[in-house]
Design a protein around this nucleic acid. Structure first.
Lengths: 213, 213
DNA sequence: CCCTGTGAACCTGTTCACAGCG
DNA sequence: CGCTGTGAACAGGTTCACAGGG
């Protein structure tokens, strides 16, 4: 809790892979896995053993030489590293189609995220339910963020207001925003932003198939 | 059309940025932009001029020294490079919440993608409509892919069947799959796969805020 | 003198290969 | 003897800095 590990900047791609390792380990554990080597863990993810070992080495030594890794304990370590060992509350801003789909997305709770509130500005949407949540006006957002000490938000508003909403989230004290709006958000330093640009992803894929012959 | 440019492997991050350049240029053009320098284009995207120029240099020379770029013609070049100059038909497999949200997502048509069919296996969903599309049984998929010469598919099935569906898409002749299921898809070489793992993205974001103090 | 286009230096992440411990 | 953990070599993308055209 007060570990304050002087995380000397872990490469972002390594962090991405760590999430894959954990996810895959959870699957293996559900099937009753015991020991696993870096090679085994790597190949189902189309990586190499060296890559896995290097990524883990950023955080410590989790295996036994000559043996491999204990799946359960490695998963435990990864959960802790990624903060997946405790539930993290998140909020959603923008209750359009995409927002509502994300609110129901099972992958989030499966990985330790709990949606605790959803906001919008449209009178048509406010008061409606998404699952067990009632959509609230965004003016209620700062109070909820403070009350529940929310650190993460999903941003699914139209692109036109994304920046404005991001500013409000920043002001309210949110620490990270995962934005689904196209365009880069301008934010103050302490706020981390992740971007998921769906159309851009599709365009990149289209490019990659166009360029191979 | 038969340019067969010996695209000597453009870095993936460069392609990602190209989509951002184009998107941003479209916005600027809508506001009546004329000339733009690499610096101007860069800074709203939090990049540097050098980066922009280097990325463009992979494909040719689009600017005029001492002047900058003509926004309209640069956008045109980028559209051609990215294949956004012509509409690309796509299909959707998996008509769950996420799939239906993607089917309605405006960003796709805005960037030149047209959803022409949606598939599922659930009798509850087949025959229902998503916008103007009727959900069909996936067994119809190969015929549609052939008929419309579909190259791209969105995969929004549960993770448990994602691999199986990917194999069917592969077999049907689809060239690229954008998968929203967690886990790495095993595919034959000619098939390109893009992954959008929502929970992984959120986890990466959570990590990044946890590690800064 | 401005801004592009680009060789060259730089830097960061990946891969190799092996020392080291079980 | 196997598999981890890790220095060292490598690769590839980014940044620098400037030549070159307008």
């Amino acid at each position: 809790m007060e570990k304050s590990r002087m995380t000397k900047s872990i490469p972002a791609p390594a962090v991405r892979r760590l999430t894959l390792y954990l996810q895959h380990l959870e699957e293996l554990l559900a099937r009753g896995a015991g020991r696993i080597s870096s090679r085994e863990l790597a190949e189902s993810l189309q990586l190499t053993g060296a890559q896995v070992r290097r990524d883990l080495a950023y955080f410590g030594q989790f295996g036994r030489r000559g043996v491999g890794y204990e799946a359960a304990s490695l998963a435990g370590n990864l959960r802790e590293i990624l903060g997946a060992d405790k539930t993290q509350s998140i909020i959603l801003v923008g209750a359009g189609d995409l927002g509502r789909a994300l609110a129901r997305y099972r992958g989030f709770p499966q990985r330790g995220f709990k949606l605790v509130a959803a906001f919008d500005v449209s009178p048509k949407k406010i008061g409606k339910k998404i699952g067990s949540l009632t959509i609230q006006h965004i003016r209620e957002m700062p109070a909820i963020v403070k009350r529940d000490n929310i650190r993460l938000a999903l941003l699914t508003t139209p692109a036109t207001v994304a920046q404005e909403v991001a500013d409000q989230l920043d002001l309210a004290g949110v620490r990270g925003i995962l934005s689904f709006a196209p365009g880069v958000l301008q934010t103050s330093k302490p706020l981390a932003v992740g971007q998921v640009d769906l159309a851009s992803n599709l365009q990149q894929l289209a490019f990659s198939i166009a360029s191979e012959e």
